[in-house]
Amino acid sequence: MTLAPSDMLCFALHSAAHAVHAAYAPLLTPLGLTYPQYLVLSALAANDRPTVGDLGADLRLDSNTLTPLLKRMEGAGWLTRSRDSQDDRKVRLALTDAGRTLAVEAAAVPRAFAAKTGLEPSQIADLRDILAVLRDRLKPAKP
């Protein structure tokens, strides 16, 4: 028996991802951020001076996706990239003053997005955790 897309988990996830991106756009556009830039900004605000590799692993982005994104953000003056002082094969990332200011402005975004969902905080946490388990079962993080 063939399932209709509306009965498929993959379609529910796919269409929900599109809805999430659409809901974030009006929250991020006034800040001059795209959704991927927002994720990088948030990650750097939470963990200053990670390597590009560590950031890519955390965000599950390949270097061919992450590198141009980081270059654009560096060009905008939001972050710096520099060689690690102990291992020059690694590149470390840090927010600039402008990046830290933008991160403070963007700190209201999660609350605004949560309000758009109409879900209770516990429901959001449960959904996040279930999706993380699913993600990790389907594609474990690279070591």
Results as ranks from 00 to 15, higher is better:
residue 53 G to F: 03
residue 54 D to P: 02
residue 54 D to Q: 15
residue 55 L to W: 09
residue 55 L to I: 09
residue 55 L to S: 06
residue 55 L to H: 08
residue 56 G to C: 06
residue 56 G to V: 02
residue 58 D to R: 14
residue 58 D to F: 05
residue 59 L to K: 07
residue 59 L to T: 12
residue 60 R to D: 11
residue 60 R to P: 01
residue 60 R to T: 11
residue 61 L to D: 06
residue 61 L to V: 09
residue 62 D to S: 13
residue 62 D to C: 08
residue 62 D to H: 11
residue 62 D to P: 08
residue 63 S to Q: 13
residue 63 S to R: 15
residue 64 N to I: 14
residue 64 N to T: 14
residue 64 N to S: 14
residue 64 N to G: 06
residue 64 N to P: 07
residue 65 T to F: 09
residue 65 T to Q: 14
residue 65 T to H: 12
residue 65 T to G: 02
residue 65 T to I: 11
residue 66 L to P: 11
residue 66 L to I: 09
residue 66 L to C: 10
residue 67 T to V: 13
residue 67 T to R: 14
residue 67 T to K: 12
residue 68 P to V: 07
residue 68 P to R: 08
residue 68 P to S: 11
residue 68 P to A: 09
residue 69 L to P: 04
residue 69 L to I: 06
residue 69 L to Q: 10
residue 69 L to W: 09
residue 69 L to S: 06
residue 69 L to E: 11
residue 70 L to K: 06
residue 70 L to C: 11
residue 70 L to R: 04
residue 71 K to L: 13
residue 71 K to F: 10
residue 72 R to F: 09
residue 72 R to C: 05
residue 72 R to N: 11
residue 73 M to H: 09
residue 73 M to A: 10
residue 74 E to R: 15
residue 75 G to R: 09
residue 75 G to H: 12
residue 75 G to F: 12
residue 76 A to G: 13
residue 77 G to C: 07
residue 77 G to D: 06
residue 77 G to A: 08
residue 78 W to Q: 10
residue 78 W to H: 14
residue 78 W to P: 04
residue 79 L to K: 08
residue 80 T to P: 02
residue 80 T to N: 12
residue 80 T to Q: 11
residue 80 T to V: 12
residue 80 T to W: 04
residue 81 R to Y: 04
residue 81 R to I: 04
residue 81 R to L: 13
residue 81 R to W: 06
residue 82 S to E: 15
residue 82 S to L: 12
residue 82 S to R: 15
residue 83 R to I: 07
residue 84 D to P: 05
residue 84 D to R: 12
residue 85 S to V: 15
residue 87 D to R: 12
residue 87 D to V: 08
residue 88 D to H: 15
residue 88 D to Y: 13
residue 88 D to A: 15
residue 89 R to E: 14
residue 89 R to L: 14
residue 89 R to F: 10
residue 89 R to C: 08
residue 90 K to L: 15
residue 90 K to P: 02
residue 90 K to T: 06
residue 90 K to G: 04
residue 91 V to K: 12
residue 91 V to C: 11
residue 92 R to Y: 01
residue 92 R to I: 03
residue 92 R to H: 06
residue 93 L to Y: 09
residue 94 A to H: 03
residue 94 A to C: 05
residue 94 A to N: 09
residue 96 T to R: 02
residue 96 T to W: 04
residue 97 D to S: 05
residue 97 D to C: 00
residue 97 D to I: 02
residue 97 D to Q: 07
residue 98 A to F: 00
residue 98 A to E: 07
residue 98 A to I: 01
residue 98 A to G: 00
residue 99 G to Y: 00
residue 99 G to A: 01
residue 101 T to G: 00
residue 102 L to S: 02
residue 102 L to V: 00
residue 102 L to R: 12
residue 103 A to M: 01
residue 103 A to Q: 02
residue 103 A to G: 01
residue 104 V to W: 00
residue 104 V to D: 03
residue 105 E to R: 10
residue 105 E to I: 00
residue 105 E to C: 01
residue 106 A to I: 02
residue 106 A to W: 01
residue 107 A to T: 02
residue 107 A to P: 00
residue 108 A to R: 05
residue 108 A to Q: 05
residue 108 A to G: 05
residue 109 V to N: 01
residue 109 V to W: 03
residue 109 V to L: 01
residue 110 P to E: 05
residue 110 P to D: 03
residue 110 P to Q: 05
residue 110 P to M: 03
residue 110 P to W: 03
residue 111 R to D: 12
residue 111 R to M: 05
residue 111 R to K: 08
residue 112 A to H: 03
